[in-house]
Computed example of a mutant assay.
Amino acid sequence: MTEDAVVDVPDRDLLTIGAFAARARLSAKALRLYDRLELLSPAHVDEATGYRYYRAGQVERARLVAMLRQLDMPLARIAEVVGAGDGPTAAELLGTYWADVEARVAGQRTLAEYLRGRLSGRSSEMYQRFAIETVDVPEQVVITEKRHTLADELPAWIGASLGRLEAAARECGGVSGVPYVAYHAEVSMESDGPAEACVPVADEAAARAWAERHARAWETAVRVEPAQRLAYTRITKAQVAHPQILAAFEAVEEWMAAEGLTQAGLCRELYFADWEAAGAEDPVCDVAFPVSSR
């Protein structure tokens, strides 16, 4: 006899898995999966036979779990939604999840358009949107914080790390230049850099004392950056988002090649504006490469 067969039900209010599956318009296989994932447990399991029994009142929860899985919602978030029951809390949890999905899809759509441009040979057209200039930067002392991070964690880490360093700069004579993030290697969903947040400060001795005190909490350091020339393009807050920022980096690299310049240091993003106060079209960042003549 199978679990789906008609058996003596231990409680007249209980349904066999087959009867419950029919009411919920789901398969018994799906219900067993939901039980295994701890999303929908039977009301009773016969100790002797292992048969599962459900109450009619569980039908709506079963259907809700099935529909949420169709949204590709992670299991942990499904548990949060169904655990909240019907009402504004569950609706808010679903709304938050779907906003995240739409943001991710929007980013993927932008990336697809960017890649279409590259693959179709329209890269030069994209790069022409960026004005490239050079600037000479004097020698400066920087306090730094380095971290291996993937692309999805990078924006939050940049904001947090630059915030910590700017606060620390008060102990080091104050901020004396534009904060920036330097990349020791590629940061993507497969490559974790590392990236290094850097804030120029006025007092080298105080900076070294600060770094020594905080070395255990964060991967901090102090160094003297030599005077250098940067090739850069200025971008808006909207353009900082991935993958738009990739086009900015590539535009500077193409310009450097055309001008006969070579990269002489780590590529970087210099954040010169108040990020929170800036609008989407406000300039906030310079994408830059240290350069030298060949």
Results as ranks from 00 to 15, higher is better:
V222D: 06
Q58C: 11
C267F: 06
D203A: 06
V175E: 09
F249W: 08
Y180D: 04
P290D: 03
P74T: 10
A131V: 14
T236Y: 07
V224I: 13
E166G: 05
K29I: 12
A211W: 07
V291Q: 09
Q244S: 15
Q70T: 14
G83A: 07
V82Q: 00
M1D: 02
K237E: 12
D203N: 15
T220H: 02
A215R: 14
L270F: 02
V178C: 10
T16G: 15
A258K: 12
P283D: 12
Q108Y: 11
E212Y: 01
T16R: 14
A202Y: 10
A131P: 04
G50D: 13
W218R: 06
F249M: 02
E212V: 01
R216Q: 13
E171A: 10
R294I: 12
D13P: 01
S191A: 07
V178E: 14
V284S: 05
R36K: 15
A48M: 11
D8L: 05
E204L: 09
E47A: 06
Q239G: 05
A264D: 13
L75I: 15
F130I: 03
A169F: 07
H214N: 13
V291C: 08
Q228K: 07
S120P: 01
A160H: 08
R234D: 10
E139H: 03
Y232L: 15
A221V: 02
Q108L: 09
A227P: 04
D136C: 01
H242C: 05
T236L: 08
Q128A: 15
P179R: 10
L266I: 03
E38A: 13
A288I: 10
Y97F: 15
F272H: 03
L115P: 01
D286L: 02
R129E: 12
V135E: 13
E113K: 10
L270E: 14
R77A: 06
R164G: 03
R164P: 03
R52A: 03
F289V: 08
R118S: 01
K146Q: 15
Q239C: 06
G265N: 06
E153F: 01
A227D: 08
